[in-house]
Design a protein around this nucleic acid. Sequence first.
DNA 1: GCGACAG
DNA 2: ATCTTGTCGC
Length: 229
Amino acid sequence: MAHYQPLHDWNVTPAEAVALQQQLRSQIRIEPLTKPPQTIAGCDISFNKFEETVYAGIVVLRLDTLETVEETGVIGTAPFPYIPGLLSFREIPSLLQAWQKLKTEPDVVMFDGHGTAHPRRIGIASHAGLFLNRPTFGCGKSVLVGKYDELAPERGAWSPMRHYGEVIGAALRTKNKVNPVYISPGNLIDLETAMALTLQCDGGYRIPEPTRRAHNLVNALRKGERVFS
DNA sequence: GCGACAG
DNA sequence: ATCTTGTCGC
């Protein structure tokens, strides 16, 4: 049901992947949201060690109540290995299949990884944002590139992440005295809004609800505890 | 050349 | 990411 723009083929070599990133980065737009979002989606993939089968899923929730409104999942194959900086080429193909199964198009999408906080400023959230043509941002659990000053221990505290002099994202504390998560805009959104949405999706855990639910979903799918038609 | 390195 | 039990701290 939900559609996307197939900007390019995913059957590429690592060198071609880097070239594609260099070519696509100019199309990324970091700007405030056009309309107030009502729904947000979380995406994630899971797999068994040493196996190529990937379990991808998307969970859509209402931003006001954090109630889950839709879930989709697919079992596919990873056409690309995990290479730092090229994560999107491994995860996006299957996520696009899950996206196609959505009945409603989410207003904004949160990814497990980075957006502009990437060596070439086009992490999975930015790359997918170009295909989906809607606001996307990344919420990573660790740093790929960039440095930041330590932040206060309270939830809500944050510190900008810098790389080669430019602000590429922010370390944001989502829970008191717990390691921060790393937020960076993907496409069609700005850092401030991405951080606000992350805090709004609080479920009492370090990981915001969209990503946390997507993670639980794909793990259940991998273990055969969930089925999608 | 050496170390770092999203998930 | 995944493989896994107990254990330290609030």
